[in-house]
Design a protein around this nucleic acid. Structure first.
Lengths: 134, 134
DNA sequence: CAGTATCCGGCTCGATACTG
DNA sequence: CAGTATCGAGCCGGATACTG
């Protein structure tokens, strides 16, 4: 582990301890963010939105396997947290465009690193699983 | 977004497209890793383990709110994926130590960045929520 | 097109009790 | 101490039908 990571981990642990001791009303930030992006679809949606503004129906098609209901729910949650912007065009039929806010864009930073880790180590993980299962 | 991130995002998107087109047997790596660390406890456990080897009972105490069942389940899943090592000492009463494997250590890298993002932007998220709810 | 409404099956997870 | 076994509530999320 690099020195930079070590510092980050320590910061994270310290924050977690502080949260426990101080008995805050709100949730631990790490827990909170993890709960948000840890669901089945959020990351995939954010990923698609990183390509620029896109309409509801197009998103529905491009995020593989997602239902209409879950796309709506996911987008609403992301909008609520200030990660996504929703723009309604008053046309017939109605058009709605979704895009990342600057806050949402900033999330691409850690997310892309995580995705890279996933891609770089996926083989190793699959191997470990196969070995464990026998 | 920095050029480095842009490249990472594009790599992620490309990988995702490849996966869809190729109809692989296995899951998309990003989905797969997200499913694994996206659960309620994995990240918190990995975080605790970053402090060095620790025994089951100590982990149970230090990961706030986790049940015995979920700690066992979570540790087993992490072990299966090759992120965690389990060492049994043949004493009375028995002692078991858990620690991160090199692969697990490498996960601290993206995880710490994500945690930092969470801590740095939590306030902004809470504000966005409050504003959205009214 | 972009949603909302309703229904409901499955799976996660917590509580509790028990074992080597 | 370090687990496993069993049960059951809750909620996540899919399917389907309907609306402005």
């Amino acid at each position: 582990m690099t020195a930079k990571n070590k510092a980050a981990v320590e910061k994270m642990q310290q924050t977690h301890r502080d949260w426990e001791e101080a008995d805050y009303a709100g949730p631990c930030p790490v827990r909170d963010v993890l709960d948000r992006i840890g669901d089945r679809w959020s990351v995939m949606v954010v990923l698609r939105l990183s390509g620029g503004p896109i309409r509801f129906r197009a998103l529905l098609r491009s995020v593989d396997g997602i239902s209409q209901r879950m796309l709506t729910t996911t987008l609403r949650a992301l909008e609520r947290d200030g990660l996504v912007d929703r723009t309604v065009f008053d046309t017939r039929p109605p058009a709605v465009e979704y895009s990342l806010t600057p806050l949402g864009e900033s999330l691409l930073d850690p997310l892309s690193l995580l995705a890279e880790w996933a891609m770089d180590h996926h083989e190793q993980i699959l191997k470990a699983r196969k070995n464990f299962d026998k």
